[in-house]
Write a protein that binds this DNA or RNA. Structure first.
Lengths: 181, 181
DNA sequence: GGGTACATGTAATCAGTTACATGATTTA
DNA sequence: TAAATCATGTAACTGATTACATGTACCC
């Protein structure tokens, strides 16, 4: 209670969580881990994965331990406070907004300001994009399919599958309606 | 080609698009319009709806015309350049990232660091949230249902319906699996 | 041994958020 | 006529994005 309650963002929790999971990480490790997992639905540039741990170390949620030799990497670990902050966050369902941020949807929202042509190619492009992502997720799922379906690692992936299927359905329906209508 | 190609964000296009649609708008009008439509899937604080048009006016995509009397409101209109910029954007399918930003999903991603209890209440909370939103969208859809299903105004709403249904399915399945498994 | 890609970081800028502030209008 | 709420705006801050910079390893 002595420190003035540092404000933690979702980004902070990504960092804390990954370090909690893997024990010790450099910023580059974080970058890799993000790219291979959360990055699919929660991405940010790697520069944040350098800046954020520094902040977290400043407020005592991480320890920073810099190599003396060669690359002088900074290795981060969780402190007791860090673990507490993380548990605390995990224990209370976040009521933050869920947002489907899709520039394509924004364009569709303004479809009335443009021609049918443009909307058709928008729908085509977006359908293709989501089919791609769906395929990617399905490949990943297949490769994981030794394990239990409800295993945690698979859960966010499953969420991705559902979301992508909905997206494909939407855009392809739209395309059909526009070209056959 | 004389001006140095102002960088336009998605926010810029929301502003340009709404002004294109309605002709003349104050920042407050924008705020209202956003809250009632795009805001559902692309939100930002009202302060940006004051700041952004100022920038757009500076780079010549809007004209600003300030009331002399009483409230001295700024009324914005599209310039020819503004319309061109907008058409231009609409004519090229944006290849920007689609992201499902959901803090709850982030928590789920770190479910391995916590107990089953916490995950259950997370799933319950999220299921409830999405059922709510689904209900809202369904009410809106019902009230619009005089018109054609494929009418543009309804399209982003339909997208919302699909997305919310997928979300409800996901979280309620998860809850079931966790409590019955 | 020169090029290319990976690894690691910093700096500057800019957009987004929070917070504050106050005038106008309605309502109790 | 006081309180509450709507309307309108600005300022300060901070987090995110872009861009730059350079070291190290590997590949041809």
């Amino acid at each position: 209670m002595s420190t003035p309650e540092p404000r933690l963002s979702d980004t902070s929790y990504v960092v804390l969580g990954l370090i909690a999971r893997f024990g010790t990480m450099t910023s580059y490790d974080l970058k890799q881990a993000v790219a291979a997992s959360v990055g699919y639905f929660w991405s940010f540039p790697h520069s944040q994965l350098y800046a954020e741990p520094v902040r977290l170390a400043e407020v005592g949620l991480l320890t920073e331990d810099r190599e003396e030799s060669g690359r002088r990497r900074r290795r981060y670990r969780l402190t007791a406070d860090g673990r507490r902050a993380l548990q605390n966050w995990l224990a209370t369902p976040d009521d933050g907004r869920v947002e489907l941020r899709d520039p394509g949807l924004l364009q569709l929202f303004f479809a009335d300001l443009t021609g049918r042509e443009e909307v058709v190619s928008l729908a085509e492009a977006r359908e293709a994009l989501h089919r791609d992502r769906l395929a990617t997720y399905e490949r990943i799922a297949a490769s994981l399919y030794a394990g239990d379906r409800a295993e945690v690692g698979n859960l966010t992936l499953r969420r991705g599958l559902y979301a992508e299927r909905a997206a494909v359905r939407f855009w392809s329906e739209l395309r059909t309606e526009l070209t056959e209508g």
